Computed example of a mutant assay.
Amino acid sequence: MTAPLRVVRYCASRRWTAGSLKPSAAWLAPGELRELELFRDPQRRQQWLQGRRLAKETLAALAGATSLAQIEILTRDAQGRGLAPQVQVQGRPSRWRLTLSHSTRGVLAAVVDRDRWQVGADLTDAADRSEHFRQLWFTPAEQAWLNAAPTVRTAQLWSLKEAIYKACNQGEPWTPRAIELQFNPATSPQCHYHGRPLLGLQGSVQTIDGQTAAVVYLPGPGDRSPAGQSVAAELCL
């Protein structure tokens, strides 16, 4: 049976009772145990552990790993700087690309075929944001779109920008205004990333466990699907 090309899973933090998820060589690779030591805050450590557990369980089913410790996921370089998740299975680069997002309530993981897709995911609390926040991080056109439902749409748009950045970035800094979504009632929404139109971008936005969750996909180098699809052919808002 052919493995699915895209898998998205969410797991609420309440699955694990407080402090029940312990770091151990039984399920974490040596590099992961070293990476965990970079985090001192207990809550951040638990979020990291929850993300690794969910991602490894998802990848194990796809990659045929017999032990979670056979899968290594690193998100820091030798200097401790953040990286897109680097996945190895039994010491070899995996065919699967991973993205993770953590919150105080849970973890969201998306896995895709590396040759077919780039992927980004984000979880955002639908909290009230100030007008200053919207003016600082959104373009004037985006702000006009937000005004119809500021709380809900701000969470949706912020989560989308985070997810698009994860799918597209090649080391450039996080600059929310450089990711511009344009909404026109007569056409599908369009997206530009640092001035470059994103063709073939697909995505969804939904509410999960009281949070806004966005997942986006961009065709990878091995994708043979028709080019030129609108950014929002599958963008659900």
Results as ranks from 00 to 15, higher is better:
63 A>N: 10
51 G>H: 12
81 R>W: 10
103 S>R: 09
91 G>T: 12
33 L>A: 05
80 G>Y: 11
17 T>N: 01
99 T>A: 09
64 G>K: 02
78 A>I: 15
40 R>C: 04
87 V>H: 05
41 D>Q: 15
17 T>W: 02
56 K>S: 12
66 T>F: 01
101 S>I: 13
51 G>W: 09
57 E>K: 06
34 R>C: 07
28 L>F: 08
87 V>E: 04
30 P>K: 11
39 F>C: 15
58 T>M: 03
52 R>D: 04
106 G>H: 06
16 W>S: 02
70 Q>I: 03
13 S>D: 12
68 L>Y: 06
44 R>K: 10
55 A>N: 06
21 L>I: 11
11 C>D: 14
53 R>K: 10
59 L>C: 06
48 W>V: 11
26 A>E: 15
27 W>V: 07
104 T>Y: 03
93 P>N: 06
45 R>Y: 13
87 V>L: 03
25 A>Q: 11
90 Q>M: 10
12 A>C: 01
14 R>E: 14
39 F>H: 11
18 A>T: 15
102 H>S: 11
38 L>K: 02
39 F>W: 12
22 K>M: 12
47 Q>G: 04
35 E>A: 12
39 F>G: 00
66 T>W: 06
21 L>A: 07
40 R>D: 12
48 W>T: 08
90 Q>F: 00
72 E>S: 14
12 A>G: 11
94 S>F: 08
107 V>H: 06
29 A>K: 05
100 L>D: 06
60 A>K: 05
51 G>F: 09
59 L>G: 10
76 R>S: 12
63 A>I: 13
71 I>T: 12
107 V>E: 12
62 L>N: 10
24 S>K: 03
22 K>Q: 15
57 E>R: 08
53 R>P: 00
84 A>K: 11
106 G>L: 13
12 A>R: 12
45 R>C: 11
91 G>F: 03
11 C>A: 15
104 T>R: 13
56 K>M: 11
63 A>K: 03
99 T>G: 03
21 L>N: 09
39 F>S: 07
62 L>D: 13
11 C>G: 14
70 Q>P: 00
79 Q>V: 07
94 S>T: 10
81 R>E: 09
21 L>F: 05
72 E>L: 01
33 L>S: 07
60 A>C: 02
19 G>N: 05
75 T>I: 05
49 L>C: 05
68 L>V: 08
